Amino acid sequence: VTVDIKGMEYHFDNPEEAKKFAERMAKELGGELKVENGTLKVE
């Protein structure tokens, strides 16, 4: 699973970990979490 945090890509084997990480980063950065082509994106 790929997580894109404002252009920086992180790769996770575990989808649950990827989702938790993306949600935490969205909250910390005040960004919006989206799913695009199987990639979790925070913008």
Rank of each mutant, 00 (worst) to 15 (best):
V1C: 14
V1K: 04
V1D: 02
V1P: 03
T2D: 03
T2W: 11
T2A: 04
T2V: 13
T2N: 05
V3A: 02
V3E: 00
V3G: 01
V3T: 01
V3F: 02
V3M: 02
D4P: 01
D4E: 14
D4R: 13
D4W: 15
D4H: 15
D4A: 13
D4K: 14
I5E: 01
I5P: 00
I5F: 06
K6H: 15
K6G: 15
K6L: 15
K6M: 15
G7W: 03
G7R: 01
G7P: 02
G7L: 01
G7Q: 02
G7M: 01
M8E: 11
M8H: 12
M8L: 12
M8P: 01
M8F: 13
E9N: 08
E9V: 15
E9I: 15
E9K: 15
E9Y: 14
E9D: 04
Y10E: 00
Y10H: 04
Y10A: 02
Y10W: 08
H11I: 11
H11V: 11
H11P: 02
H11D: 02
F12K: 00
F12M: 01
F12S: 00
D13F: 07
D13P: 09
D13A: 12
N14S: 13
N14F: 05
N14V: 04
N14D: 14
N14C: 08
N14G: 06
P15H: 12
P15W: 15
P15L: 14
P15T: 08
P15Q: 11
P15C: 11
P15M: 15
P15I: 14
P15Y: 15
E16P: 00
E16S: 07
E16G: 06
E16I: 09
E16H: 10
E16R: 06
E16K: 06
E16D: 12
E17I: 06
E17R: 03
E17M: 07
A18I: 00
A18L: 02
A18C: 02
A18Q: 00
A18V: 00
A18E: 00
A18F: 02
A18G: 08
A18N: 00
K19N: 07
K19M: 15
K19Y: 15
K19F: 14
K20P: 00
K20D: 12
K20R: 12
K20M: 10
F21C: 05
F21N: 01
F21M: 01
F21L: 01
F21W: 09
A22Y: 03
A22D: 01
A22F: 05
A22E: 04
E23Y: 04
E23F: 03
E23G: 00
E23Q: 07
R24D: 13
R24P: 02
R24G: 11
R24H: 14
R24F: 14
M25P: 02
M25R: 03
M25V: 10
M25G: 02
M25D: 04
M25H: 05
A26F: 05
A26Q: 07
A26G: 04
A26W: 09
A26T: 06
A26E: 08
K27G: 09
K27C: 13
K27P: 01
K27H: 12
E28I: 10
E28G: 02
L29H: 06
L29A: 04
L29I: 08
G30A: 08
G30E: 09
G30Y: 07
G30H: 10
G30Q: 09
G30S: 09
G30K: 10
G30I: 05
G30T: 04
G31S: 07
G31Q: 07
E32A: 12
E32R: 10
E32P: 05
E32V: 15
L33V: 15
L33E: 03
L33T: 05
L33W: 11
K34S: 10
K34Y: 12
K34H: 11
K34V: 13
K34E: 04
V35C: 13
V35A: 08
V35H: 09
V35P: 04
V35G: 06
V35R: 05
E36K: 05
E36Y: 11
E36L: 12
N37R: 04
N37Q: 08
G38K: 02
G38A: 06
G38H: 07
G38F: 03
G38I: 05
T39Y: 11
T39F: 11
T39N: 11
T39D: 06
T39K: 14
T39V: 15
L40M: 09
L40P: 03
L40N: 03
L40G: 04
L40V: 06
K41S: 08
K41R: 12
K41E: 04
V42T: 04
E43L: 14
E43T: 13
E43R: 07
E43C: 13
E43H: 13
E43S: 12
